[in-house]
Design a protein around this nucleic acid. Structure first.
Length: 289
DNA sequence: ACAACCTCCTGGGGGC
DNA sequence: TGCCCCCAGGAGGTTG
């Protein structure tokens, strides 16, 4: 589910409560999500103070006071919700849609504060990475640059696209090219840049395509920044840490908008849905080339 | 190396 | 109301 803007929204929602908090106990209701929980997961977390809450791509990274890192990925349908505690507004308890059947992990903190990990499809994962070089973890080591960071730019795309016959969309979904994009934001960024998801990536390499690459970089950065500002997109399962919803889905130009008019001024095209390597792609075939 | 599958899992929605 | 099929925001693995 959650792509970079949703994970970042969750991170920001959790940070004020979690940083400085001490884990009292952890309840596990199943042996595994996408992968098994590591040996002694609950015991290793118990008593640990959370020193930081970061994000890399779609991973949440909770730095612990023993130097280890709790790594959390929400997969397609995972969510993290805070519950309880004196600081929690009453309204919160009404906003949260309770779904105890899929609350697979509950972290208990002081004063009755709980953090619930809910994930109907169980494509998410949690793991503990021992103290040391976090970026050497194989899951993080393969990731490309953060799309909102200084290391990402048109030159990165030039190198990634050169000589590639794969469609543009496939490379933007490749987390080793640029980290954090998923189906929604790739569709949206390509529409903004006026580029077809089916176009061979190699056609965007080289000096002649530099303006198109610049437009694409701008489109990616803009759509992600706007989505974060809107609290992400809530489709099916995604909710904020406080149970409220994002609203960037209302700003989609193409995603899930099959049959609607292309919002580009003067275009006059219609949004279509196409099958691309087993997944849905939304685009306007009139203005995306 | 690269590109095109396939798979993990469950729930919601549409069609009949 | 019920059933069946299709669909879903990710990503790692396998196959040619």
């Amino acid at each position: 589910m959650p792509e970079l803007p949703e994970v970042e929204t969750v991170r920001r929602g959790l940070e004020p409560t979690l940083v400085g908090a001490v884990v009292e106990t952890v309840e596990l209701f199943r042996p595994a999500l996408r992968i098994p929980f590591p040996e002694g997961f609950a015991a290793r977390l118990s008593g640990r103070r959370i020193e930081s809450l970061g994000r890399r791509s779609k991973y949440l990274l909770a730095g612990l006071d023993d130097g280890a890192t709790l790594l959390v990925h929400l997969g397609m349908s995972g969510s993290l919700r805070l519950d309880g505690g004196a600081a929690m507004p009453d309204a919160y308890h009404h906003a949260v849609a309770k779904d105890p059947a899929h609350d697979h992990v509950v972290f208990h903190f002081r004063d009755g504060v709980r953090l619930l990990y809910n994930d109907p499809r169980r494509f998410g994962l949690m793991d503990l990475v021992a103290a040391g070089d976090l970026n050497a973890d194989p899951r993080l080591a393969v990731l490309g640059p953060e799309p909102l960071g200084n290391a990402f730019g048109a030159d990165v795309l030039d190198a990634a696209f050169a000589g590639r016959a794969a469609p543009l969309k496939a490379l933007l979904l490749d987390q080793s090219v640029v980290a954090g994009l998923g189906n929604i934001y790739v569709c949206e960024a390509l529409w903004r840049a006026g580029l077809s998801p089916f176009r061979p990536a190699g056609s965007l390499a080289g000096p002649a395509a530099a303006p198109a690459r610049e437009a694409l970089v701008r489109a990616i950065s803009d759509v992600l920044a706007e989505a974060i500002a809107a609290g992400g997109s809530s489709l099916r399962d995604y909710v904020h840490a406080d149970g409220s919803l994002g609203y960037f889905q209302h700003a989609f130009a193409v995603y899930d908008r099959e049959g609607e008019p292309c919002p580009r001024p003067g275009c006059g095209g219609t949004i279509v849905r196409r099958r691309q390597s087993g997944r849905s792609t939304f685009l306007c075939e009139r203005c995306q080339r």
